[in-house]
């Protein structure tokens, strides 16, 4: 495996010492197949232990390491550095408050998620065994259940940048996932929640969320389905 010299620019911010975020350059030799997370680990372990970033599973499952690299929201653990030419600019997710360096405050993100009741609501009598669902019924939600809640979509949404009260694509996708789940009985309640000025109608089908999603979920398409369902149910 070939090693290559790369310049890594990282947007650093320590609220205890800095007035505002600033760029710091690091240079190192990395395998071309290294991921952005490998690079951050290398810097953190060998060069600058004060660099703060989130990581956990390093397998694209936990959603901890979402960040902005060369203008794109990506998962650091599954994005190789050879995808980027020249300098690699690493920033925290936009649209969220920075806690330190690449660590952002996700509290509001998870508060919004809780608003749409991200769990199965069941009113009917419980079956003896499990709830059954046909493959056709599951197909409606198959992709949306793969969301790992990394926040890359919500962070990339210009509607959210303009209005922090907007629920955002991740919470709305979670609402879609349960509203279109045939086992769930809480669809009306959830539609009531998202059918709001700061809910689904702030989505202007910009498609940034779809581009940013590391799991390639067609978020905008599902949100459009949700809009149609809400309008159909209210006419």
């Amino acid at each position: 495996m070939s090693k290559e010299k790369r310049i890594i620019k990282i947007l650093r911010y320590d609220p205890a010492n800095d007035k505002k975020p600033h760029w710091v350059d690091y240079t190192g030799e990395f395998d071309s197949d290294s991921t952005i997370l490998d690079v951050l680990n290398d810097i953190h372990w060998k060069t600058d232990g004060s660099l703060a970033y989130r990581r956990s599973c390093r397998s694209g499952i936990c959603g901890s390491c979402a960040m902005k690299v060369n203008g794109q929201n990506i998962l650091a653990c599954e994005t190789p550095i050879h995808k980027f030419k020249g300098k690699i600019k690493i920033e925290p997710l936009p649209g969220f408050a920075i806690i330190k360096d690449l660590v952002v405050d996700m509290d509001l993100f998870f508060e919004k998620l809780k608003k749409v009741k991200p769990y199965l609501v069941v009113d009917k009598p419980l079956p003896d065994k499990e709830f059954t669902q046909s493959p056709e019924e599951f197909e409606y939600i198959r992709e949306s259940v793969t969301c790992i809640l990394c926040g890359a979509c919500t962070s990339s949404c210009p509607s959210l940048w303009g209005n922090e009260d907007y629920l955002g694509p991740a919470a709305l996708l979670k609402a879609y996932r349960f509203i279109f789940d045939t086992r769930d009985d809480g669809a009306n309640e959830r539609m009531d929640i998202v059918n709001d000025k700061n809910g689904i109608w702030r989505c202007h089908t910009i498609f940034n969320c779809m581009e940013a999603c590391p799991k390639d979920i067609k978020i905008t398409e599902y949100l459009s389905r949700l809009k149609v369902k809400i309008v159909e149910n209210s006419i």
Binding site: N188, N195, W201, K227, S234
Partner: peptide, 18 residues
């Protein structure tokens, strides 16, 4: 499905439809 959630007129649903 029941129509027991609030109407869309003031939420943005109707202007979206129009």
């Amino acid at each position: 499905m029941d129509k027991n959630f609030k109407e869309t007129s003031r939420s943005g649903g109707i202007i979206w439809l129009f």
